[in-house]
């Protein structure tokens, strides 16, 4: 669905950040991209979303080369490829329900259809009791849940999340990832999580692990006990 093909990015001429990265996100699965701070996780996500052009290589979304998108095509891409940022970026003076409804309103969905979808998402993310709370009054965990609920509300095809477990404890992160996994399966959503909190992730055969090592993205065996051991199977 979302595919990167040998993409590279350099900000400092002498020091490439990412080189020849190939990667694919598939429906019903979660891809975890791990890496230390400053290794290019956020840059990679931004390139996958078309916010940043790669210096070389291509990114494809549903068979479309992102470089060839029109301005309207880019708007549509942002709707298809939702993103949860490290800072939740909620509208603080709006309620949880208004925040979750926002992407639907942007798509021109109103009335019963909107209400039904918002209720469904709020229920799934266990936010019903917080529906009328203003976003600025939420705890870090509640705000993160709301951010994810908002991101998935308008049926995106891909969900990218940058440091989704920042400021969360392990138990909460586990629960959130389980929720996302359920959502990925039910809505056939492809999820990409960029994090350095690998120990916060539950074990599942639906989670693929990747790691950025020295500008390259490599596939990692799904062995949480030995995440430092890298496998060259992910052709980087």
């Amino acid at each position: 669905m979302l595919r990167a093909e040998m993409i590279s990015k350099t900000f400092d001429k002498d020091e490439p950040l990412l080189e020849q990265v190939s990667f694919a996100a598939n429906p019903g699965r979660i891809c975890v991209i791990a890496g230390e701070t400053g290794t290019g996780k956020t840059t990679l996500l931004r390139m996958l979303r078309g916010e940043l052009p790669p210096d070389a290589g291509r990114v494809w979304m549903a068979g479309q080369d992102l470089r060839r998108l029109s301005s309207n095509g880019r708007i549509q891409l942002l709707r298809k490829v939702a993103m949860v940022h490290e800072a939740d970026r909620l509208l603080g003076d709006k309620t949880v329900i208004e925040n979750v409804a926002l992407p639907l309103r942007i798509m021109g969905i109103h009335g019963a259809k909107l209400a039904e979808r918002v209720e469904q998402v709020l229920t799934r993310f266990d936010l019903t009791r917080l529906a009328y709370r203003f976003a600025e009054t939420l705890s870090a965990g509640q705000a993160r849940q709301t951010a994810f609920a908002r991101a998935v509300a308008a049926w995106p095809q891909v969900l990218l999340a940058d440091e989704p477990f920042a400021h969360l404890d392990r138990v909460f992160a586990h629960r959130l990832t389980r929720l996302l996994l359920e959502h990925a399966v039910e809505d056939q959503l492809a999820i990409v999580l960029a994090t350095h909190h690998l120990d916060y992730l539950p074990v599942s055969d639906r989670i693929d692990h990747w790691q950025i090592v020295h500008t390259r993205l490599v596939h990692v065996e799904e062995d949480h006990e030995n995440l430092g051991v890298l496998s060259p199977t992910g052709d980087s």
């Binding site: 708007i75 709707r79 939702a82 993103m83 940022h85 509208l91 926002l102 992407p103 942007i106 908002r150």
Partner: peptide, 15 residues
């Protein structure tokens, strides 16, 4: 900030 959030969610310029 708010406009940036809206744009990130795929809002059209008209919206």
């Amino acid at each position: 900030d708010e406009l940036s959030i809206l744009r990130s969610l795929g809002a059209s310029p008209g919206f």
